[in-house]
Amino acid sequence: MPVDKKHLGRRYGPYRFQVSVEQIKDFVAATGGGVPGHAFSSPPDRYHHPWTWDEEAAKASPHGGIVAPPTFATTFAIEPFARACSDPELAVNVLRLVHGEQEFEFHEPVRPGDVLETAGEITRLQERGNLDFVEVTTTTRNQHGRVVVKGVWTAIVRN
């Protein structure tokens, strides 16, 4: 069943997320061919920019320390989208759902110690044939009140 259009504009969050250097390194390991964690783990074995995981190299960089890779944003900014997809009011079957489209606008680097808040809103509900599009737009701000990243997340549900 398609999602009821009355849910357009439904809001989720804000959700709080405190960034640690371990989370950034885990993300880099997982996306760079390594193994995250602190037991049986290994660093990225495929190219990953050293300023995102090598503390010595990052210290000598213009940023003076580790900066998160841009798509680390997924870890904190996904929450309103995931909440919408599993919202009982929307009644989406998660097994029939795929992530269809993604867009990010990166405004400020994310660093260890940042405290981020992400809020989201359903910005599009559309049927196309037997496919149902659910779009959530998110905005994340840091502890200085500055926008860090904006995301547009689109789920496609096969009805």
Binding site: T31, G32, Y47, H48, H49, W51, T52, P62, H63, V67, A68, P69, P70, T71, V98, H99, G100, E101, Q102, E103, F104, E105, F106, H107, P109, V152
Partner: peptide, 22 residues
């Protein structure tokens, strides 16, 4: 996708926009 762009741009903070359809 982002890693490929960052490798080319030379600095992770230089990427300002990324989009795609799965």
């Amino acid at each position: 996708l982002s890693d490929a762009c960052v490798g080319y741009l030379g600095d992770p903070t230089r990427l300002v926009r990324l989009r795609g359809r799965f």
